[in-house]
Every structure is written in structure tokens, then in C-alpha cells.
């Protein structure tokens, strides 16, 4: 239970920080012309590294933050984040996903799933005049490509953070003084 709560809180914090980074990067590098969705990186990472329940908790947190920042109705991106996490987990177990390139491919796939899913669900529920057009799918594909590229430098960073969080005190050091 403690591990699940920790995963949720870490997901929440990391997604909020990545969303802030994404907003600033989008503004300074292209003024938002190039779409970017950095928190999806966390979903792919959770799919590679976390157990099912921990990963679901982290995905719920990441999706919630994405909903808050994207201004979408509550639950839309939360649902898609959990779906992307579970789909990535399936992909990980059925395909050999290794190293930064495999991770980047996973991020690209997850971003496409979240983006296309959001457009599809919004088309089902939005008022006819506010429904997203199919032309936005091109922007989602662009977002997936940029997300996959951004995942390459983030992979070693996440690995380092993971090692730091998993670090255990060396045995025998206690009581040396």
C-alpha cells in the first residue's frame, strides 16, 4: 500500500514538474508550434519499471496532472494515461523493448494512443461545433515524434533517478562511529 501511495505521489510531482518544463520549452522553442507532451514519458517509464498496481497509481497521477494542465474535462487524459500505461506494459512483455531507442519508441506509441484517444473521445462527447477535426491527428503524430525524440535524453536521467530512489543503505555502516 505504501509503495502504491509513493508511486502516486512521485507520479504527481514528476508530472507537474515535467508539465512546467514542457510549457516553458514550448514557449521558448517554437512558441508552441511544435506540440509536446512530456508527462507521457513517465507512463512509458512506469510500464518498463513498475509493477501493475504501482504503475496504475502513477499513471492515474500523471493523467490527472495532464487533465489539469491541458484543461480537458476531468478523467479524459486520466483514463487514457492508465490505458497507455497498460498498453505499454503489454507491448513491453510481448516485444523486446531495450535501451533508449526502445524506450523512445514506447513513448511515441503511448503519445499517439493518448492523443488519438483524446480526439476520438472528445468527438464522441463534445458539442458538434466544438468537436476536434481529424486534421488534428497530424499534430498528434508530430507530438509523438517530438515526444520520442525528447525521450532519448530523458532515458538516462530517469534511470539515474530510479537508481537513486532504489538505493538502500550499505550494510555494516551503521554504528561505525
Amino acid at each position: 500500500m505504501k509503495r502504491i501511495a509513493t508511486a502516486f505521489l512521485l507520479g504527481l510531482l514528476a508530472a507537474a514538474l515535467l508539465s512546467g518544463l514542457q510549457a516553458a520549452l514550448s514557449f521558448h522553442l517554437g512558441g508552441g508550434w511544435v506540440p509536446l507532451s512530456l508527462p507521457v514519458v513517465l507512463l512509458a517509464w512506469a510500464a518498463l519499471e513498475a509493477e501493475l498496481l504501482e504503475g496504475c497509481a502513477a499513471a492515474l497521477a500523471v493523467g490527472y496532472v495532464m487533465d489539469v494542465f491541458a484543461g480537458t474535462p476531468k478523467g479524459l487524459l486520466t483514463f487514457l494515461a492508465v490505458l497507455a500505461f497498460q498498453a505499454s506494459r503489454l507491448a513491453r512483455s510481448s516485444l523486446a523493448v531495450h535501451g533508449p531507442v526502445g524506450f523512445a519508441a514506447l513513448v511515441g506509441g503511448a503519445t499517439t494512443l493518448v492523443g488519438a484517444g483524446a480526439i476520438l473521445l472528445a468527438r464522441l462527447t463534445a458539442a458538434p461545433e466544438a468537436q476536434p477535426g481529424p486534421g488534428l491527428l497530424w499534430r498528434v503524430l508530430g507530438e509523438s515524434a517530438v515526444g520520442a525524440l525528447a525521450a532519448l535524453p530523458l532515458h538516462p536521467l530517469l534511470a539515474r533517478v530510479q537508481r537513486f530512489l532504489a538505493r538502500e543503505p550499505e550494510p555494516g555502516l551503521q554504528g561505525h562511529r
Binding site: 498496481l53 496504475c56 492515474l60 484543461g71 474535462p73 478523467g75 486520466t78 492508465v82 490505458l83 473521445l121
Partner: peptide, 20 residues
């Protein structure tokens, strides 16, 4: 629990979709 993590947000979305 994994299924619930999918179903609950979807239900929340359909409840809020028209009136965020």
C-alpha cells in the same frame, strides 16, 4: 484494481464531458 483504474476515470470523464 487495474480494471478499476481504467473504468473510474472513464466514468468521471463521461460525467464531466459536457460540463467541465
Amino acid at each position: 484494481l487495474g480494471a478499476a483504474a481504467l473504468v473510474v476515470p472513464l466514468a468521471v470523464y463521461f460525467a464531466h464531458a459536457r460540463h467541465p
